[in-house]
């Protein structure tokens, strides 16, 4: 790209991410055989179905040879699709590559739509079969939504959220940030009346712990970094006021939605204004606070994207379970009253 500065580490990371994105230009070749299988399966089943329908008064139903075959194939595909859940739960079994499973899951899942539509003879039928068909459509549609989201959102997170972390740790990390900034501000501005006891001790220790004491169960590791504590600076009271009124609620996620800290540009202006109110010696501390706020903002954005990235599974997975349960009932009933 003209004018673009190549950063080797970034390019390597970008290429790596492109490979993991579900469906994109560079990632298309491994999908191609599955796509061909999907198209061939759709066209083949359509050709068989419509050929069998020639001269017949009604569309071939589930008890016709093509209909029965489509039912068996569709049912087996659905069971296979469900096995992806088992494959994910039992990663140590190593039955095929996860990416291959996922590609098969995507394209075979799509193939169930035409195959089972032809199985049904293009009718919804009674209650059970209608519910089954509608469930199938919802499951496939939610899967497509998930596919789209998982194709788009990881790239966006990669590009826009450099502070991305593990989703489940956001609250914990936010608490860490609050605690660290509390100590820092306490040290720079003097002890507030209701500062936490832990902050007192750390401020008096003369250094700040950066990061966490890593622990696994009862075993605790070392602190992985420290930062020299700033000395108390006179005239830094506006910083303390800002910290208590604006930043603490923001770090806790309790700030009003109109808080300027939620928006990058307004936050930058706010911190610029704050720097003008405090002595230059505190500017480094203000910059650190601004950095933490940005990190907190990114985590919040990450939480939103994470929700969209995975929430479709709240529909896709449970309805898949229902689909399998009702499919078993449908198979038994259909064969009983064949």
């Amino acid at each position: 790209m003209p004018g673009r500065i190549a950063i080797p580490a970034y390019e390597e990371r970008k290429a790596s991410e492109d490979r993991t994105v579900l469906l994109s230009g560079p990632n298309w070749p491994p999908h191609r055989p599955w796509f061909i299988l999907f198209v061939a399966g759709t066209l083949g089943s359509a050709a068989w179905f419509f050929t069998a329908a020639l001269g017949q008064p009604v569309w071939p139903g589930g008890s016709s040879l093509p209909g029965f075959t489509f039912g068996v194939v569709g049912g087996l595909i659905i069971l296979f699709e469900f096995l992806l859940w088992v494959r994910k739960k039992k990663r140590v079994w190593r039955v095929g590559r996860a990416q291959t499973w996922l590609r098969a899951h995507i394209w075979l899942g799509l193939l169930t739509v035409p195959v089972l539509w032809f199985h049904s003879g293009q009718r919804l039928g009674g209650w059970l079969s209608a519910v089954l068909m509608i469930l199938l459509w919802i499951v496939v549609a939610s899967g497509l939504v998930g596919l789209w989201l998982q194709t788009r959102l990881p790239k966006r997170m990669l590009d826009d959220l450099p502070a991305e972390t593990i989703y489940s740790q956001i609250d914990r990390l936010s608490a860490q940030l609050e605690e660290e900034t509390q100590v820092l501000v306490t040290r720079v501005c003097g002890l507030p009346e209701k500062a936490p006891a832990q902050a007192f001790s750390r401020a008096l220790e003369g250094h700040l712990v950066v990061g966490a004491i890593r622990s696994v169960g009862l075993v605790q590791g070392l602190a992985v970094g420290t930062r020299a504590a700033a000395r108390q600076i006179h005239g830094a009271e506006p910083l303390a006021l800002f910290f208590q009124q604006e930043m603490v609620p923001f770090l806790r996620g309790q700030a009003d939605h109109n808080s300027p800290l939620w928006q990058k540009n307004r936050a930058a202006m706010l911190f610029q204004n704050l720097k003008a109110q405090v002595p230059p010696a505190t500017h480094e501390t203000v910059a650190l606070l601004e950095n933490y706020c940005e990190r907190r903002r990114e985590w919040d954005e990450q939480a939103k994207l994470h929700f969209w990235l995975h929430s479709w599974l709240l529909i896709h997975f449970p309805l898949s379970v229902s689909l399998v349960v009702l499919m078993v009932a449908h198979i038994v009933m259909a064969l009983k009253y064949y």
Binding site: T165, I166, Y167, S168, Q169, R172, L173, Q176, G211, A212, R214, S215, V216, G217, V224, G225, H306, F307, H310, S311, L313, L314, F317, P318, L319, S320, V321, S322, V325
Partner: peptide, 27 residues
Amino acid sequence: ATRIPLDYFKAANPLEKWKGLLGWAAL
């Protein structure tokens, strides 16, 4: 990464929790 405890994966994930609950309900 140093901020993340090594047993982070044991922490409850609300989405996973809901997925499990809804899965049982769907069954």
